[in-house]
Design a protein around this nucleic acid. Structure first.
Length: 545
RNA sequence: GCGCCUGUGGCCCAACGGAUAGGGCAUCAGCCUCCGAAGCUGGUGGUGCAGGUUCAAUUCCUGCCAGGCGCACCA
């Protein structure tokens, strides 16, 4: 992939710094930014401000000197055609103004290449395993899982688009305590249905769906001892359907039961033992996680001989690396944040860097209805499920709403707002922009002009629109750095807004032929970017609505 | 007590450490004989408190205040 303008300008500034006295003192990294406002040019650098202290000169004076040096470098740089002005502005920012031709070329690239023009090879095929949801198969997915599903799936889409090689994985807790309790819950309900007098403990699964499973188990004459597995499989089918209806499809379902059978847990333990990270105390086996910054050491085999949850998890994460993944991303609920240090300790014990594992804590979503929070209680089986949200507001609005806030922030999700087909609802705002464009394109009768002269686009709103489209790549970069897809939702709203403003002031159809052709090309470009962004979010791109 | 997340107009949220803190809802006033008014234009109004670092702090650090969540040989 060829160098982009940002990299070329950065190189230009560095050459200028080196050419002058300033170069010797330039310690800081030169960064070319998109300015917050188009008044400040198309690219900006704050290097003069940063150098001010070291050079013991006012920023504006340094910036002025730098601009002169840059001017001398430009003829040699091959950027002569692209740069229209370089100016010192504000407190000492050096701002670059580009010629409109640059933007026409970029727009042309998008129109001719489509989504490929928006791709960046940042991943270089690196194998990434993203594990998310991983809810115990003991009940329907909750809204907390739903948010994790939306965030995880979208992040995977984005990383895939940036040429990482992605695997979506669901860790299936299909054995252990919770499955046992699930089995016993079903057993008791079956006995209850058979007319037996039973006492149903509080920590058992209270939901009505347990009755359904009990009936089905009875029909199939399942033995009591197998009820846990039976119920787990039964619920897993439901979960898979819920996720699939939500547009989330996993590449692999990793079974804890099979992990235990494989002997990989024992293998992991013996390797840790060789390395000296295991010790016995109080009749239990401990992992020395404090060696890697954890607060305290952790038990992995209890004094009664059974394993803690950490035991299979240590083996599971090591197995992820052994399967060839070099970057692991885990999405966990906020109740697991205390768990990060132990798992990071365990991967370090095996010789990996803590950076090879990114744990993203997905904060909870609170469901509102008409501004009032909807109360829920997991224990009583009364919680808002993904299924209910899907049935009520649909997949598009659900996904968009779950992605609308920074993942580390709490999210308020108002069902009534999500259902509204009005300007209050950002999903429709974005989809409406897309549908509007499609509507215009539909009404074009002669599709002749395949090679429009884009230089007809001279209005401020037209250039703003092109510039906004070109920000898309930078937005995806931020998503990668922050491991958070939510910025895409913000961006799409901004792009839609820029389009709606253009649309209101300028007509596409019925202009002089050259202008109409150019504007048609412009909105085709917007359509490509909008459509690409929505697709990454997993939200549909309606042609009409 | 310890840890994590969050405090931005009446309400909900934006702002890789940058330039005059942006948008939506609500509210007030306007815009459809013309490509979709699910849209656009204008008005009102804001960084919890106290320090610190920096040329520059909504952003980073410390303390406080307020809200949410979590703290097992549970999973």
């Amino acid at each position: 992939m060829q160098k982009n303008i940002q990299e070329e300008l950065t190189a230009l500034v560095i050459r200028a710094l080196r050419a002058g006295e300033l170069g010797k003192l330039a310690q800081e990294e030169v960064i070319l930014d998109l300015p917050t406002d188009s008044r400040f040019g198309d690219f900006t650098t704050n290097i003069a401000l940063k150098l001010s202290k070291a050079l013991k000169n006012p920023p504006r004076q340094i910036a002025a000197a730098l601009v002169e040096l840059i001017q001398k470098e430009i003829p040699e740089s091959g950027l002569n055609e692209l740069i229209s002005q370089v100016k010192v502005e504000g407190a000492g920012f050096v701002n670059f103004y580009l010629n409109a031709d640059y933007f026409y070329n970029q727009l042309n690239k998008i129109i001719t290449q489509g989504k490929d023009a928006l791709k960046q090879d940042l991943g270089k095929g690196r194998k990434v395993l993203i594990e998310f949801v991983s809810a115990n198969p003991t009940g329907s997915l909750s809204v907390a899982h739903a948010r994790q599903a939306a965030v995880g799936d979208c992040l995977a889409n984005i990383l895939g688009f940036l040429n990482f090689s992605i695997q979506r994985e669901y860790y299936l807790n299909d054995e252990g305590n919770q499955i046992n309790i699930l089995g016993k819950s079903v057993q008791l309900r079956r006995e209850e249905l058979a007319g037996k007098k039973t006492e149903f403990p509080e920590n058992y699964y209270q939901g009505d769906y347990i009755y359904d499973i009990a009936k089905e188990a009875d029909k199939q004459k399942i033995k009591d001892a197998s009820l846990g597995d039976f119920a787990g499989d039964y619920i897993l089918k439901i979960i898979k359907q819920e996720l699939s209806d939500f547009g989330v499809n996993f590449d692999y379902w990793y079974s804890q039961k099979e992990l235990a059978k494989s002997g990989k847990i024992d293998q992991a333990f013996s390797r840790l033992k060789e390395k000296g990270f295991l010790f016995e105390q109080d009749g239990a086996l401990w992992f020395k996680s404090t060696a890697f910054g954890d607060d305290k050491d952790r038990v992995i085999i209890k004094s009664d001989g059974s394993q803690t949850y950490l035991a299979p998890d240590i083996a599971y994460h090591e197995d992820k690396f052994n399967r060839g993944f070099s970057w692991l991303i885990n999405l966990w609920g906020p109740d697991h944040h205390g768990y990060i240090n132990r798992i990071k300790a365990s991967i370090q014990a095996f010789g990996h860097s803590p950076e090879d594992l990114s744990v993203i804590i997905v904060q909870l979503a609170t469901i509102f209805r008409n501004g009032q929070p909807v109360q829920m209680s997991t224990r009583r089986g009364q919680y808002i499920t993904l299924r209910e949200v899907l049935d009520e507001v649909g997949s598009d609005a659900s996904r968009f709403f779950f992605l609308m806030r920074r993942t580390s922030s709490h999210l308020d999700f108002d069902l009534e707002v999500a259902k509204k087909q009005s300007s209050e609802n950002p999903v429709y705002y974005v989809q409406y922009a897309h549908a509007r464009i499609c509507s215009i394109l539909r009404s074009v009768t002669n599709q002749s002009n395949g090679n429009p002269d884009l230089s007809a686009l001279k209005e401020k709103e037209e250039l703003n629109l092109i510039k906004k489209m070109l920000e898309f790549k930078a937005v995806l970069n931020i998503c990668l750095v922050t491991c958070d897809p939510y910025m895409v939702t913000v961006y799409l709203q901004e792009l839609s807004e820029t389009f709606h403003k253009f649309y209101d002031l300028h007509r596409v159809l019925g202009q002089a032929e050259a202008l109409t052709s150019a504007r048609l090309a412009l909105i085709k470009g917007v359509k490509i970017v909008l459509s690409c962004g929505l697709e990454l979010l997993g939200v549909s791109q309606p042609e009409s609505m």
